[in-house]
Design a binder for these strands. Structure first.
Lengths: 251, 251
DNA sequence: CGGCGACTTGATACGTCTCAAACTATGTGG
DNA sequence: CCACATAGTTTGAGACGTATCAAGTCGCCG
């Protein structure tokens, strides 16, 4: 069951630039080590650890974050269904941030060893994993710009646009609405704002008629308008290559 | 001549986690396409372009940045000697930020094709390039934390610590001082502060006796003290593995 | 019923921005 | 060799966006 999900989410995403052979698809599925069902706000990986599996989210949300000595927290990434949380530990000695769940989540662990083996023997798989990592990097950079250069209002709008498109790319948007389980505290730790100010900013977004956000459901009434308010351009997500139809396996 | 520099800077850095064979070293040198000597503030790569070579800085500084429609600029990375500016375009269709020089610079272009060929045929080389990309990603994330969570004072101190250590790792620190050719405007665009405030902040760092910064020369009088002021921990740079002695080639 | 997490609102404080203007160093053309 | 322009740095004063502190509401779960 989690195999089917992994195939439809992760593999579909990894194939976005280049389709795989049936064997390649199967070899990734064979790397599944275990499946974890986690509650909200559970720890997955601790900063500094040397875990020996990599995690892929199939349901729910997770995030990467770093804690500062004074207790402040900066969330540095979100993992939505289909995202790999910690691909980097296949090659770096230690994790440089912690990973935790946001909502209830279904996560599979892939064996680090088997994955390493795969990428050595299939350049196409290696390339695909590389590419997702590079997209993640592009997202980090965009977040830096967001936090560094935009007002609270645009910043929040930008985050909503990004999450909406990422969720839409994995089929988790119906009409104009999607699950959005982040608390205002989590949004604050993402956008580098205080919770109070996030609250006021969301209020303003609601008042302006751009969004509805209630009961962990986000509705974007007019995406182009929200994008304009955010100064959002989706290029950095490299979603253009994610196809809606079934890709035909390569030879 | 640029071959020697490339070997001593880039290859030394890429070998940080795992030494290469003589053939592997040579194959990277053979990928050199051309050598560019550039003035300060020259464009190397434009956002959105599809360049067909990747750039390695051998002398001088370069940076990656993104411009916003209103003219604001966020610098998202620095490239010091030994750094690859745009490794990602080996696998992503378009550049997602621009690259320009900060100071006069000597840059080599490696052929994208040959590099791709190398990484397919030598898993060890592939791993090494991967790893530098992952370190770059860790740096982005740390910058996000810096801009999001720290005061102007710590933020500036943090940047100075990072650059100092990165330069030291490639042998560009004598005693406690290194070249530091950034203008205050560039520091401002990096730290997401106004130029005026950067100026006051640097003044304060000077007054506190932590640094001397004059004529593009940075001296850090007591690194541990500056690190403490910055809340800086060097783990994310993964420099621990860069050796001072000559690594022996692997078989 | 009590307690806890998330959200909301108000008042005040503070860090940083913006605007404005000197001042310095460097390079250029007359 | 001077006059001038240009780029970078420095300083002052006031404005503004966001933080902080404080308190209260709502819904949910034990």
């Amino acid at each position: 069951m989690s195999t089917t999900l992994l195939a439809s989410l992760l593999i579909r995403k990894l194939e976005r630039f280049e389709p795989w052979s049936v064997d390649e698809r199967q070899s990734v599925l064979d790397a599944i080590d275990s499946t974890l069902r986690l509650p909200a706000h559970a720890h997955l990986v601790q900063e500094g650890e040397i875990p020996d599996g990599i995690h892929v989210v199939l349901e729910g949300f997770a995030c990467g974050y770093k804690l500062l000595p004074d207790g402040r927290r900066q969330i540095v990434s979100y993992c939505v269904p289909g995202d790999v949380c910690d691909l980097r530990i296949t090659l770096l000695p230690r994790m440089d941030c912690s990973i935790g769940t946001i909502s209830q989540a279904l996560v599979v662990r892939l064996s680090r060893e088997r994955l390493q083996h795969l990428t050595v023997h299939s350049p196409r798989l290696a390339r695909a994993f590389w590419q997702t990592a590079l997209v993640d990097q592009a997202i980090s950079r965009e977040w830096l710009i967001n936090v560094g250069q935009r007002t609270a209002f645009s910043r929040a709008a930008h985050l909503l646009c990004e999450m909406f498109l990422r969720l839409r790319a994995v089929g988790l948007v119906q009409e104009n609405t999607c699950e959005f389980p982040l608390t205002q505290t989590e949004i604050a730790d993402t956008l580098a704002l205080s919770t109070v100010h996030v609250n006021r900013t969301l209020m303003e977004l609601r008042r302006s008629g751009l969004i509805t956000l209630r009961d962990k459901q986000l509705t974007i009434h007019h995406l182009p308008a929200l994008e304009a308010a955010a100064g959002f351009t989706p290029d950095y997500l490299h979603l253009e290559a994610i196809l809606d139809d079934d890709a035909t396996p390569a030879t």
